[in-house]
Design a protein around this nucleic acid. Structure first.
Length: 793
DNA sequence: CGAGCTGTGAGGGATAAAAC
DNA sequence: GTTTTATCCCTCACAGCTCG
């Protein structure tokens, strides 16, 4: 800038030296320029000074900043230190925070929420049931919950009203029913038991069923065990065996109806129909009086009906092979006794007695069947005979389940040596089919068996049979016993085996079985009508076997047919056996499996206990209803809470609440009472009607008798008989003659005559005189005759 | 000793109220 | 609008008490 100024000043001087017109102008211009430059300079100067100023400022600022930074650094260092410290303490802080969070959460937990979404939770309902069954009044359930929670430092939200508690109890009962339904739906079998008592002139019956169920524990290894399930107490006015059987069926029906409606059933797909459930009933346990036995028989027939209904149904139901086997075996067992009966009925020498050791001692000294001592009578009656017994004896000797007894090894070796490698069929269980098997083997190798028995006898020191061996030896020589064995074997070949062949190895359903059972029946009819299709020289499997296929054991059939001349009664006994065959023989002879299925406790304590509980309950809750008691008791005794915990989902609880309200408003108790009253009224009405009818008849009779003239001639009386004699007797009685009080005391004609003649004699001696006769009025006698007529009943 | 009163706890109908 | 609970109302049976 200084340079430029110098240039400019030089130029000005030059211009001032050169005076030129244009230069003057230029100079002026230059001066102007100079002036402007000067102002520029001023500006620059200003600028500079400003810059300088700023520099100083900035310098001073930066200096202060530096100071700042220094202080800041110190501060940061301090902070860093602090942070480091804080960092070190972080876990501690964290723990503290967690603790705080926990405590605040606890504070929230300290309020126990009974209500969820406006309804009491399942847990709250469980609590209510628990308290009530522990004896808490419904009214105070809420108070107790609050009090207990308060002492534990927990506040409670919501307070259950008495009505709600009541409903929770009803819901417990419904849950118990769902549970029983669920268990029944999965059961293979169950048994029932009952006991009754009366309370204030009303009859109460407690029912239990017994079945194999899970205990609903969390243990995964637990196996189902046999348990009681309380079905509830019913008060049925109808105390007949039929009515009581109906009660039991109704209870099961009720349980199944509720179960089938439940979400649990829908979810698990286990539906159960009543007829199916009844068909699973394997036994009834009651007291041993005659009415209870009748009850048990009725239940049995209900089971048979149910099984029949299922057999004939068009619904596809899988049934295990074993079950069919059992059914069929049971059916067979019905035939044995009738076969025995045939010999007696037709006066033919029956199979010889196969007395056991004790009875044998008694019967050995027997000369004739007349004049039996009671001991001999008992020995005779308890001694069995016939094909089944012979087969079972053979089984006991040749294939005893206890290997130490019997001759099983020697038997096998001896027969193997004789060129017949067989093992004797196992008859030690109760399966009837095995007796048929054994019968076949015995017949086929009859001579060999005799030979073997002799071998056994002779190989002993004293060369004597044991009692069993002797019995079998004799039986195998006895035509009647052989006849029975032949019947059993033939039956198996003609019907049992073909039947089994059709079923075995197939995926059986009942639809397929219905025609098969018809076929069995038809073939049986064929045999009955013409036994020759089975027992004649030209009988073959085409006519004899039900399925017209080759015999299962052709040798056996041939052996029997060969023996026919020795067995003259074979076809008769066969027909008789087949006729008596009942396809519905039930629970009598049980196999181990059946026994397992038909598990029953030895005593009836559970039912008696429940009835006792009811009385106790009513002492303290006089207005309680029967269904409330049942709900509480079923829930408690049947282990229902664990069941609910294991199986119930939200919709199940909803279902419970829904059903609970339904039950709550269904007036069960008043219905129960009304039913009772109505039944009694109807019964009274019937009785009254009967009485009226009887009175009417009595009046009519008296009216007629009163018109009959009394005959006071002994000879005429002597000549009377029948109705006329009876009329005279009645007339004398009506006339007040001294006769025996009861009509049944005078029944025989001779007595009647004598009685009347006695009366005439007394009349002649003026001991009495007839009242009301000739006048024909009857009114006066009605009362007098009341007693006599009652005696007649 | 028994009639009558009282308290308790029950059943259950009707309906309002709350929650969804 | 439906579901669930709460409340009010009445009824009943029994035990235990009082009192004549």
């Amino acid at each position: 800038m200084a340079v430029r100024k110098q240039i400019l000043e030089g130029q000005i001087k030059f211009l001032q030296a050169v005076e030129l017109p244009t230069a003057k102008g230029d100079a002026a211009k230059a001066i102007q320029l100079l002036k402007s430059k000067t102002s520029d300079n001023e500006k620059l100067k200003h600028e500079l000074s400003r810059l300088l100023e700023r520099c100083t400022l900035e310098a001073s600022q930066s200096k202060s900043k530096e100071m700042d930074f220094k202080t800041k650094l110190v501060a940061f260092k301090r902070q860093n230190h602090l942070l480091q410290k804080r960092c070190d303490r972080a876990p501690e802080i964290k723990a503290k925070a967690v603790k705080r969070a926990k405590s605040s959460a606890n504070k929230e937990n300290r309020t126990y929420k009974l209500l969820h979404k406006g309804a009491y939770s399942p847990q709250a309902r469980e609590l209510a049931r628990m308290l009530v069954s522990a004896g808490c009044s419904r009214e105070y359930v809420s108070n107790v919950i609050h009090a207990v929670c308060k002492s534990a430092g927990v506040a409670v939200q919501g307070s259950m009203s008495r009505r709600t508690v009541s409903r929770a109890i009803l819901e417990g009962g419904i849950a118990a029913k769902i549970q029983i339904g669920h268990e029944l739906a999965q059961a293979e079998a169950f048994t029932a038991s009952k006991d009754g008592t009366s309370n204030k002139h009303v009859n109460y019956d407690a029912h239990h069923i017994n079945l194999k169920v899970s205990s609903y524990s969390d243990d995964p290894d637990e196996v189902p065990t046999h348990c009681h399930r309380f079905l509830g107490i019913v008060s049925s006015p109808d105390q007949s065996a039929e009515g009581q059987a109906e009660d039991l069926v109704e209870q099961i029906d009720d349980v199944l109806k509720i179960y089938n409606k439940s979400p649990l059933a829908k979810r698990s797909g286990h539906f159960m129909r009543l007829v199916k459930a009844i068909s699973l009933l394997k036994g009834v346990n009651t007291d041993h009086c005659s009415k209870e036995k009748k009850f048990s028989n009725i239940m049995k027939s209900k089971v048979v009906d149910a099984v029949r209904e299922l057999l004939g149904e068009t619904e596809v139901l899988e049934k295990s092979w074993e079950e069919i086997d059992i059914l069929f075996d049971k059916a067979l067992s019905g035939g044995n006794t009738p076969m025995m009966a045939w010999w007696a009925e037709n006066d033919v020498t029956p199979p010889i007695l196969l007395a056991n050791h004790d009875n044998a001692a008694v019967l050995n000294n027997l000369d004739s069947l007349d004049d039996l001592t009671p001991a001999e009578q008992h020995a005779l009656e308890s001694t069995t005979r016939g094909g089944v017994k012979a087969a079972s004896l053979a089984g006991a000797i040749f294939n005893h389940k206890d290997d130490k007894k019997g001759q099983q090894d020697i038997f096998k070796w001896w027969f193997k040596n004789a060129g017949i490698p067989i093992a004797f069929p196992d008859t030690s269980n109760n399966r009837y089919g095995t007796y048929c098997e054994a019968a076949g083997v015995l017949l086929l190798y009859c001579d060999k068996f005799l030979e073997f028995l002799e071998f056994v006898r002779d190989s002993k020191k004293k060369h004597v049979f044991t009692n069993m061996e002797k019995n079998l030896y004799n039986a195998l020589k006895d035509p009647a016993t052989l006849t029975e064995l032949a019947v059993l074997a033939l039956y198996a070949q003609a019907i049992s085996h073909p039947y089994m062949r059709q079923i075995r190895g197939k995926n059986i359903n009942m639809l397929d079985l219905a025609p098969l059972h018809l076929q069995v029946e038809q073939h049986m009819i064929n045999v009955i009508e013409n036994p020759n299709i089975l027992v004649s020289a030209d009988a073959t499997y085409t006519t004899g076997a039900m399925d017209e296929k080759e015999w299962e054991k052709p040798d056996v059939v041939n052996a029997i047919l060969k023996r026919m001349p020795e067995l003259p009664h074979l076809s008769n006994v066969l027909v008789h056996f087949t006729t008596e065959f009942t396809p519905s023989g039930v629970i009598d002879s049980a196999t181990d499996l059946q026994k397992e299925l038909a598990w029953m406790p030895a005593t009836n304590d559970v039912n008696e206990g429940m009835l006792g509980s009811l009385r106790q309950f009513w002492r303290f809750n006089p207005r309680a209803t029967l269904h409330v008691f049942n709900s509480l008791a079923m829930f408690q005794r049947n282990n229902t809470q664990p069941f609910m915990n294991k199986h119930f989902k939200e919709d199940d609880h909803k279902f419970l609440m829904h059903m609970g309200r339904e039950v709550d408003s269904s007036r069960l108790e008043s219905k129960r009472q009304a039913k009772n009253v109505e039944y009694t009224q109807a019964k009274n009405q019937k009785k009254n009607d009967r009485d009226t009818e009887a009175a009417k008849k009595k009046a009519e009779k008296n009216n007629r008798i009163s018109r009959i003239p009394l005959i006071f001639e002994k000879e005429v009386i002597e000549g009377l008989k029948g109705q006329k004699l009876q009329d005279q007797l009645d007339a004398f009685r009506l006339a007040g003659a001294p006769l025996p009080a009861l009509l049944k005391d005078v029944k025989v004609v001779a007595d009647k005559k004598k009685t009347i003649q006695n009366a005439i004699e007394q009349y002649e001696n003026d001991k009495w005189s007839p009242i009301g006769f000739e006048g024909g009025e009857t009114d006066g006698f009605q009362a007098d005759n009341g007693d006599e007529e009652n005696g007649e009943e």
